[in-house]
Protein backbone atom coordinates (compact mmCIF):
# COMPACT_ATOMS: atom_id res chain seq x y z
CA UNK A 1 0.00 0.00 0.00
CA UNK A 2 1.52 3.20 -1.10
CA UNK A 3 0.94 6.28 0.93
CA UNK A 4 2.27 9.80 0.84
CA UNK A 5 3.54 10.98 4.18
CA UNK A 6 4.21 14.65 4.70
CA UNK A 7 6.43 14.64 7.80
CA UNK A 8 6.27 17.15 10.65
CA UNK A 9 9.07 19.35 9.32
CA UNK A 10 7.88 19.32 5.75
CA UNK A 11 6.15 22.24 4.17
CA UNK A 12 4.53 22.09 0.75
CA UNK A 13 3.40 25.21 -1.00
CA UNK A 14 1.31 24.02 -3.90
CA UNK A 15 -0.97 21.24 -5.03
CA UNK A 16 -1.01 17.55 -4.27
CA UNK A 17 -2.98 15.25 -6.54
CA UNK A 18 -3.15 11.55 -7.18
CA UNK A 19 -4.77 8.32 -6.12
CA UNK A 20 -2.88 7.08 -3.07
CA UNK A 21 -3.64 7.85 0.54
CA UNK A 22 -2.15 10.97 2.08
CA UNK A 23 -1.04 11.57 5.65
CA UNK A 24 -0.20 15.13 6.64
CA UNK A 25 1.93 15.68 9.74
CA UNK A 26 3.43 18.89 8.41
CA UNK A 27 2.14 21.88 6.53
CA UNK A 28 0.46 22.08 3.14
CA UNK A 29 -0.27 25.62 2.12
CA UNK A 30 -1.80 27.68 -0.60
CA UNK A 31 -2.86 24.86 -2.82
CA UNK A 32 -5.38 22.16 -3.31
CA UNK A 33 -5.27 18.57 -2.20
CA UNK A 34 -7.04 16.22 -4.59
CA UNK A 35 -6.48 12.66 -3.57
CA UNK A 36 -8.64 9.66 -4.46
CA UNK A 37 -7.97 7.59 -1.34
CA UNK A 38 -8.30 9.01 2.10
CA UNK A 39 -6.61 12.08 3.50
CA UNK A 40 -5.61 12.14 7.15
CA UNK A 41 -4.50 15.39 8.73
CA UNK A 42 -2.77 14.37 11.93
CA UNK A 43 -2.66 16.41 15.14
CA UNK A 44 0.57 18.15 14.11
CA UNK A 45 -0.66 18.66 10.56
CA UNK A 46 -1.97 21.84 9.07
CA UNK A 47 -3.61 22.45 5.72
CA UNK A 48 -4.30 25.89 4.30
CA UNK A 49 -6.30 25.19 1.18
CA UNK A 50 -9.07 23.02 -0.19
CA UNK A 51 -9.19 19.26 0.31
CA UNK A 52 -10.99 16.80 -1.95
CA UNK A 53 -10.98 13.08 -1.33
CA UNK A 54 -13.11 10.00 -0.62
CA UNK A 55 -12.67 10.30 3.13
CA UNK A 56 -11.07 13.13 5.08
CA UNK A 57 -10.00 12.77 8.69
CA UNK A 58 -8.99 15.90 10.57
CA UNK A 59 -7.10 15.79 13.85
CA UNK A 60 -5.03 18.87 13.04
CA UNK A 61 -6.01 22.18 11.52
CA UNK A 62 -7.63 22.81 8.14
CA UNK A 63 -8.33 26.26 6.77
CA UNK A 64 -10.23 25.70 3.58
CA UNK A 65 -13.16 23.86 2.10
CA UNK A 66 -13.37 20.12 2.43
CA UNK A 67 -15.25 17.88 0.03
CA UNK A 68 -15.52 14.12 0.38
CA UNK A 69 -17.43 11.51 -1.58
CA UNK A 70 -17.76 9.28 1.48
CA UNK A 71 -17.22 11.07 4.79
CA UNK A 72 -15.51 13.84 6.69
CA UNK A 73 -14.48 13.28 10.25
CA UNK A 74 -13.27 15.99 12.60
CA UNK A 75 -11.63 14.35 15.58
CA UNK A 76 -11.27 15.69 19.09
CA UNK A 77 -8.70 18.48 18.95
CA UNK A 78 -9.18 18.88 15.23
CA UNK A 79 -10.07 22.27 13.81
CA UNK A 80 -11.80 23.04 10.57
CA UNK A 81 -12.41 26.54 9.27
CA UNK A 82 -14.27 26.18 6.02
CA UNK A 83 -17.23 24.54 4.36
CA UNK A 84 -17.82 20.81 4.30
CA UNK A 85 -19.49 18.86 1.55
CA UNK A 86 -19.95 15.14 2.22
CA UNK A 87 -22.76 12.59 2.58
CA UNK A 88 -21.51 11.63 6.05
CA UNK A 89 -20.04 14.04 8.54
CA UNK A 90 -18.71 13.26 11.99
CA UNK A 91 -17.70 15.94 14.45
CA UNK A 92 -16.22 14.56 17.65
CA UNK A 93 -16.62 16.07 21.08
CA UNK A 94 -13.77 18.54 21.50
CA UNK A 95 -13.45 19.34 17.82
CA UNK A 96 -13.94 22.83 16.51
CA UNK A 97 -15.64 23.76 13.30
CA UNK A 98 -16.63 27.00 11.67
CA UNK A 99 -18.35 26.89 8.31
CA UNK A 100 -21.26 25.51 6.38
CA UNK A 101 -22.27 21.90 5.98
CA UNK A 102 -23.67 20.48 2.78
CA UNK A 103 -24.72 16.85 3.03
CA UNK A 104 -26.12 16.78 -0.48
CA UNK A 105 -29.36 14.97 -0.99
Amino acid sequence: MAETIIGPTIQIEGDISGSDALAVHGLVRGGRIQVKDGVVIHASGRVEGDVESAAVEIAGVVQGNVAATDKVEIKAGGKLFGDVKAPRILIADGASFKGNINMGG
Partner: peptide, 15 residues
Protein backbone atom coordinates in the same frame (compact mmCIF):
# COMPACT_ATOMS: atom_id res chain seq x y z
CA UNK B 1 8.30 11.28 4.59
CA UNK B 2 7.28 9.91 1.23
CA UNK B 3 5.63 11.23 -1.88
CA UNK B 4 3.86 8.08 -3.07
CA UNK B 5 4.16 6.70 -6.62
CA UNK B 6 0.70 7.84 -7.71
CA UNK B 7 0.97 11.32 -6.30
CA UNK B 8 1.90 14.52 -8.00
CA UNK B 9 3.02 17.61 -6.14
CA UNK B 10 3.15 20.93 -7.95
CA UNK B 11 4.84 23.71 -6.04
CA UNK B 12 7.59 24.11 -3.51
CA UNK B 13 8.49 21.35 -1.10
CA UNK B 14 10.55 22.44 1.91
CA UNK B 15 11.86 19.88 4.37
Amino acid sequence: SVIAPNHRVVGTVSA
